[in-house]
Simulated assay, not measured.
Amino acid sequence: LYIGGAKYFIALSIAHLNKHKPWIESSYHGVITENTDVVLLDPPLVALDKDAPVPYAGKKARNERFIGEICGFHVQGLSAPFEAVVLNRTSGEGRLRAHGPIDCERQREFTFIIQARDCGTGPEGHGEKRSHKAVVHVQVGDVNEFSPVFGQLEYHGSVTEGKVYDSILQVQASDQDCSPQYSQICNYQITSQDTAFAIDRNGNIRNTESLSFDKESHYKIHVTAFDCGQKRAAQDAVVHIHVKPICKPGWQGWSKLIDYEPGTGSKPLFPKMHLETCVGSHESCERDW
């Protein structure tokens, strides 16, 4: 510019305006493993802004903000224990994380709203613009932290000698983990050695051979349970199987051999001898000899 023959230069300052809102995806799906604080999002959390990445005029501070950069994310939801942080203002990359470890047994999933905000038009960020509201759905991944627990520590069942049963009794265990993988009981096992019993995946106990009352009238076996993550019950259950004798008609309670010591006086030969008829209520005709 020439004025009075002199040459002058005039510097023009062009104000860069914050014209555009940041842009993010409309919905996100995330997974977080319980007892951790890192959320894996699909798609990744990235905010974009069409404004040019230029600095505010005259600002030279180390924490200088640029128009077109992303300055923050805002999580909306009173029950959502999450926060979003900006990893890179220029690229708009962010990360979603929990305020503290998440417990799947208390809550298995969360749904909340998230928005991105740009750096505004002034040194303090005034005039910032926010993106539309996006829905975030986070599912909590379970950790196999609980062992199966039996409903009772002792079970009682009975069989009649000479019979083989499909099921004598059923034991049941449960698990406090939140996922089907770790909360379901996938297997039961008899831990006692050399038994005449077997157990299926539903906890039904059966005898594998006919039993004799005279040989053994009571069996005691130990049983454990496994969840579908193969975690074993912390304490076994004890199962008592009682064998009931079958009715045998004829004279019962006598022996072919009797020990007698001379000089001890009279002795009843068969004090428990009785005639079993197995008729009606199975009452027997008894007679002492």
Rank of each mutant, 00 (worst) to 15 (best):
L1K: 04
L1P: 11
Y2K: 13
I3R: 11
K7E: 10
K7L: 09
F9C: 06
L12M: 13
A15I: 06
A15M: 04
H16Y: 02
H20I: 05
K21C: 09
S26L: 13
H29V: 08
H29G: 08
I32M: 12
E34N: 05
V38T: 13
D42V: 12
P43C: 01
P43L: 01
P44L: 04
A47V: 05
D51T: 03
P55F: 02
A61P: 06
E64K: 08
R65G: 08
I70C: 02
I70D: 01
I70P: 02
G72W: 10
G72L: 07
V86Q: 06
R89Y: 01
T90D: 08
E93C: 05
G100W: 07
D103L: 11
D103T: 09
C104F: 12
E105C: 13
R106C: 00
R108T: 07
F110Q: 08
I114Q: 12
R117C: 02
D118H: 01
G120I: 13
E124A: 15
E124S: 14
E124L: 15
G125Q: 09
G125Y: 10
G127R: 06
K129R: 15
K129W: 00
G141V: 08
D142V: 07
E145C: 11
V149F: 03
F150E: 05
G151P: 01
E154R: 11
V159S: 07
K163R: 14
S167M: 04
L169E: 02
V171Q: 05
Q176G: 01
D177H: 09
Y182H: 15
S183R: 15
Q184P: 08
Q189D: 14
A196T: 03
F197D: 04
A198F: 11
I199E: 06
I205L: 10
E209W: 05
L211A: 00
F213C: 15
F213A: 15
I221K: 08
T224N: 06
A225I: 01
F226T: 03
D227R: 13
D227L: 00
C228Y: 01
Q230R: 13
D236E: 13
I241W: 00
V243S: 00
K244P: 00
I246Q: 08
G250N: 10
W251V: 09
W251Q: 09
K256G: 11
E261F: 01
G265W: 11
S266W: 11
L269A: 05
L275K: 10
S284Y: 06
S284I: 01
R287G: 08
D288G: 04
D288A: 05
W289V: 10
W289P: 11
